[in-house]
Design a protein around this nucleic acid. Structure first.
Lengths: 130, 130
DNA sequence: CAGTATCCGAAACGATACTG
DNA sequence: CAGTATCGTTTCGGATACTG
């Protein structure tokens, strides 16, 4: 058959993420970072303000939230809108591109959530915490 | 309409990944870790030996490869088979569950690779390295 | 409210050396 | 070949204090 999907799945036409030099690794790193994942998912609900995100994403600090948002903005996944008011009012939205990655990230997270029982079944001695 | 998909997409029925206590976060961490992602993708090509993986996954060290494989094995995503020969011969395969996560992980990585031009377009001053 | 600056401990990671 | 042990570095990330 030697179809395209065969080739892709066999790895023949797979991109070069596996190669060290690939710039995809940087983007991947941002998107799969601890807070990156959660912020992208949180923003799928629509535009959110800083404090809203901080409340949604459990455990995130101001510092990390700001940093994560900046990185995602630089990558073009998030648009920041400062209303220039006092007190400050800033909100964050996924760009069209951001919606696309977020969709993939969410699919992954959803799969994990949905299969947690299967994963956590003590078929193996899962003793670790991290 | 208030359909299920509406509810899901709006976040109403989204799981609790966003909550700090959610155990999904640990699994997510393993799967989206720097080397976890790449190992899962590499193993999609079929069963691989340790040295093969080390060659495929550019830049990975023995230490990190071993560690990553152990974590993925504990999570039930990878099955390790030691042939008990001398010299040692050990190979790694995705479990059915592993194939499922790997599919999502690969979809994400593929999207990034495929959209790199769009992402890297210097609409914004991307000056950073990491 | 929406951040930034600074400090510091914890965790990830790489290099090297060693083993069955 | 397939790892482990140890060490040192670098990065991550939390706490606290401060600002427009």
């Amino acid at each position: 058959m030697t179809s395209l999907s065969d080739a892709i799945h066999s790895g023949a036409l797979r991109g070069n993420v596996l190669a060290s030099a690939c710039p995809s690794r940087d983007i991947l790193k941002h998107v799969t970072s601890r807070w990156g994942v959660l912020v992208l998912i949180a923003l799928q609900g629509g535009t959110k303000r800083f404090a809203e995100l901080r409340r949604m994403v459990g455990g995130v600090s101001d510092r990390m939230l700001a940093q994560t948002l900046q990185t995602l903005e630089e990558d073009g996944f998030v648009r920041r809108h400062d209303h220039g008011e006092v007190p400050p009012r800033v909100d964050y939205t996924l760009t069209p591109m951001g919606e696309e990655v977020a969709e993939h990230v969410r699919a992954l997270a959803d799969w994990i959530e949905g299969n947690l029982p299967r994963i956590l079944k003590p078929e193996n001695s899962r003793a670790e915490t991290a």
